[in-house]
């Protein structure tokens, strides 16, 4: 694993790396290098299998993190390629030419995070949601609790008490 990382570092600009286990590490690269790195890993380093592609919303920094998790079946190791993309008008180059299954991930990311992968097959078709008219729901600024309170009705008759406030109200209301 260490060797591969060294090899990658000699070819790509790795801005951050995190070795999780001896069979799993995460490497961060610039958006422009991400697809080349993923392709390089697939074609030259045996990371032929895509375990998953997903996003993490770092709303505070204004970024989406994309993680391409690749598996090398012969060395039995995994590399997570991370890249940060701008949250505004989030787009990423599609990789549907690399794996047949990645278009599903890209469709889901479009729907759930609003990240576009232009050219990816059926990218604009609904995947899980149908007739969704709110912001993409897996973004951090979509508040599930608020949404459910507005969309569904609470069961009437529920009320609760905070022990400390309740005790104050009963035992020392004026302090």
């Amino acid at each position: 694993m260490q060797q591969i990382i060294q090899d990658i570092e000699s070819r790509f600009t790795i801005t951050d790396k995190e070795t999780r286990r001896n069979d799993l590490c995460f490497l961060t690269v610039d958006k422009l290098q991400a697809i080349s790195l993923v392709t390089y890993l697939r074609d030259y380093q045996g990371y032929a299998s895509l375990t998953l592609l997903t996003a993490v919303d770092w709303i505070e920094e204004g970024n989406f993190q994309l993680t391409y998790l690749l598996n090398n079946p012969s060395t039995r190791t995994e590399i997570g390629v991370r890249t940060m993309i701008d949250r505004e008008n989030a787009t990423m180059e599609s990789t549907h030419h690399l794996w047949e299954n990645i278009q599903t991930y890209q469709r889901e990311l479009k729907e759930m995070f609003g990240i576009d992968f232009p050219g990816s097959p059926r990218i604009d078709e609904d995947f899980i949601l149908e007739g969704w008219d709110n912001i993409p729901p897996y973004r951090r600024d979509f508040d599930t609790k608020k949404y459910s309170e507005e969309t569904y009705f609470p069961r009437p008759g529920r009320e609760t008490n905070d022990p400390s406030t309740y005790m104050k109200s009963k035992l020392y209301p004026n302090d």
């Binding site: 995190e18 999780r20 286990r21 799993l24 375990t51 998953l52 998790l69 995994e78 997570g80």
Partner: peptide
């Protein structure tokens, strides 16, 4: 209040 430091992992 179990807090976990910044990090990520994949387990299978």
């Amino acid at each position: 209040h179990w807090r976990i430091p910044k990090g990520e992992t994949y387990v299978k």
